[in-house]
Design a protein around this nucleic acid. Structure first.
Lengths: 110, 110
DNA sequence: ATATATACATAATTTTCTTATGTATAAGAA
DNA sequence: TTCTTATACATAAGAAAATTATGTATATAT
């Protein structure tokens, strides 16, 4: 995923936020979008992404819709209502995390 | 450690940064300092902290010095030269991580 | 023809954490 | 004086989330 271990635990937040912005996306598209938005800094591996998508679906946060484009399979994911709520919560957690880490690392500014 | 999974991977960064500021600290002191600095938001568990300290020591980033205070054992840790360099690197990674996540989560501001 | 890109998937392993214990001393409350 | 809480270390079992290594298959570019 990256040279930094800090990304551990943030994959779900990333997926949910992207789906919140783009209505529906398929797995490969997510990897490319992340690469583009981060200018190559962050590369989601397939071994991490696909199990994560399956889990989010199993938890009822995502709906799937299979499509065939150019004779190739695509599985489009979109947020359920629960998924949308969870996205808000995950983004709050991220903001809180950043605030807390800044308090630890830069206590003068906290 | 916390309700949010985002802290996964940030324990080493926290330990190194605290030792960079306080010269020498012992394990229990680190847990209390983190609790205080984060106003109770973040509680480092012993099961995470002690193995992490042992690993950082084994990697040559920390030196240990055992002391007896009030008839109780304390193990003071301090940064080695390598550890100081690694601290700088970890803090850069954290800054980079925050920047990248903000680019993903708030692309308008990036 | 061959390599790269697209598009999915899973299995084995590793890393990092939680949860549950365990030992021991000191201090404060009932 | 007994019991709880705080101080101070430690490790082991298990869970969670990733990496790394494969595997299948089609499309496109060299």
């Amino acid at each position: 995923m990256s040279n930094s271990k800090l990304y551990k635990g943030s994959l779900n937040t990333i997926i949910l936020k992207l789906l919140n912005e783009h209505d529906k996306m398929y797995g490969y598209e997510i990897t490319q979008k992340v690469k583009a938005l981060t200018k190559g800094e962050l590369n989601i591996t397939e071994g991490a992404l696909y199990p994560a998508l399956h889990k989010l679906e199993a938890e009822g946060l995502l709906d799937v819709e299979v499509a065939k484009v150019d004779n190739r399979l695509r599985k489009y994911y979109k947020l359920t209502e629960t998924g949308t709520k969870e996205t808000v919560s995950k983004l709050q957690e991220l903001a809180e995390y950043i605030k807390t880490m800044q308090a630890l690392v830069n206590p003068k500014l906290a």
